[in-house]
């Protein structure tokens, strides 16, 4: 009986629809990345494993978030942040793996992971522990702290260490891939701070007259694009490079 209730998706509820679609898309992407992993050269297999893990972890979380949302009608904030705390550092690992051949050090990996965890922990405190009715001061302070973490990753990807390493790699494929991933960080990840300002009581809702349920819609669409897109960009580089190497060897 409980299961039947949970599985009912209202036709006029885009949030529930995107939870279900997001779950299926992430799962399908995971299967794709895990299977394709064997087709690429050894040096790219770890990158594809990480891509598959990102979408698989997200798929599992989306499975639970969908049920949680359909059962309670509330935002599954905690589950979402648990998902991000695992998957966003993994996305940062992709930057490290891509630039490793050009000399990326473990310190870069550590800095990116710290920045991503910083961004998410403060975002979580800002969103989940906001006093009843919504405190603007609380939202603003944790919002700014979280944004600083995001800006560090943005800086690293566009102008900092990651960008420099990609340039030094002298490999057009890596340069192009890092550039596309940097675009994901700039445009795709920007949805998250916007979503943060659209939570119940958020000022963007007031400014644009939006409903706070939009937060989940924004997050779901952004998650699917960012996570699967990130993986596909890495896959494209891996498969192109592998095919090139195979052709060279033949």
């Amino acid at each position: 009986m409980m299961l039947l209730q949970i599985l009912t998706i209202p036709k006029d509820d885009p949030v529930a629809f995107t939870f279900f679609t997001g779950y299926m898309a992430m799962m399908a992407a995971s299967v794709f990345f895990f299977f394709e992993r064997s087709r690429v050269e050894g040096k790219w297999q770890l990158s594809l494993l990480v891509s598959g893990l990102i979408t698989f972890i997200a798929a599992v979380h989306y499975y639970y978030m969908r049920d949680y949302y359909l059962g309670t009608g509330e935002n599954p904030t905690s589950l979402r942040y648990i998902d991000w705390t695992l998957t966003v550092p993994l996305m940062c690992i992709e930057f490290y793996l891509l630039t490793k051949a050009a000399g990326a050090k473990k310190s870069l990996l550590l800095k990116l992971i710290i920045a991503s965890v910083w961004m998410l922990v403060f975002g979580y405190i800002g969103e989940a522990f906001n006093p009843e009715g919504g405190s603007a001061t609380h939202s603003a302070i944790y919002g700014i702290l979280s944004t600083l973490g995001y800006l560090y990753i943005l800086y690293a990807a566009w102008m900092g260490e990651v960008a420099q390493l990609a340039k030094d790699s002298n490999t057009p494929g890596i340069q192009q891939t890092v550039r596309i991933l940097a675009w994901f960080v700039l445009v795709g990840w920007a949805i998250y701070p916007i979503g943060y300002m659209c939570m119940p009581g958020g000022w963007l809702n007031t400014a644009f007259g939006w409903d706070s349920s939009n937060v989940d819609l924004f997050y779901n669409i952004a998650d699917v694009i960012n996570k699967i897109g990130f993986g596909l960009v890495v896959y494209n580089l891996a498969i192109t490079d592998s095919m090139r190497l195979k052709a060279k060897a033949a």
């Binding site: 603007a136 001061t137 800006l151 920007a190 701070p193 300002m197």
Partner: peptide
């Protein structure tokens, strides 16, 4: 971009 994002958060106050 950095200034706009920080100020957007500040604007909540």
């Amino acid at each position: 971009i950095a200034c706009v994002l920080i100020l957007l958060q500040l604007e909540q106050l």
